[in-house]
Design a protein around this nucleic acid. Structure first.
Length: 190
DNA sequence: CACCCTA
């Protein structure tokens, strides 16, 4: 108990758990490594189409893990919304959640870009840790749900400018229709 | 579209 670890549990629908785990667990393992948190996904809950996910680690690790999971979840949610956009249109506020999703996905790339090694994300890299575990901002879980802009973006103005370039084609394509297949791969770079 | 990992 030398490390200030805590734990957080959240329920993920069965439809989303596949996206979060990824093929052969590639995505969840990536999340485990980049967040430094222990993530346990229980077997399918009988009766409720939910998988119990337990995240254990430092508060920061938990925040990062939850952020990544939320980003993937939101990406899938946006995709499903686009499928049934003919019925629900954008009145549910997806016009706001959509750019947030792209920001979240790109933030992962920012975290990855912070590491010197392009192949695998090294959690023990000092540069990565200083970026994630900066004591100046403790990421409250509540802000993750309301994700407006990630503090990381404020710390990396250069990265933010490159983000703007990457977001431009997104905004251009978000014309209520025509959002179907190729876009979702950009949402899930893992 | 599904992806099923690790304790």
């Amino acid at each position: 108990a030398s490390a200030p670890t805590s734990s957080q549990e959240l329920a993920i629908p069965n439809d989303f758990i596949g996206c979060i785990i990824g093929r052969q667990g590639s995505k969840i393992n990536e999340i485990r490594q980049v967040s430094g948190a222990h993530i346990k996904i229980a077997s399918a809950t009988d009766g409720s189409a939910m998988r119990q996910v337990t995240i254990t680690g430092s508060p920061t690790s938990i925040s990062v893990a939850q952020y990544l999971i939320n980003a993937l979840e939101m990406a899938k949610y946006t995709m499903q919304a686009a499928s049934s956009a003919a019925t629900v249109d954008l009145n549910m506020g997806f016009s706001q959640s959509t750019p947030t999703a792209s920001t979240a996905a790109t933030s992962m790339a920012v975290l990855a870009a912070t590491t010197p090694a392009p192949t695998t994300i090294n959690v023990h890299s000092p540069s990565t840790l200083s970026a994630i575990q900066n004591p100046h901002y403790a990421i409250p879980v509540s802000s993750l749900l309301g994700m407006k802009s990630l503090p990381v973006l404020a710390v990396h103005p250069a990265a933010a400018s490159s983000l703007t370039q990457g977001l431009s084609p997104y905004t251009a394509k978000m014309t209520t229709s025509g959002v179907k297949k190729s876009e979702r791969q950009k949402f899930a770079p893992y």
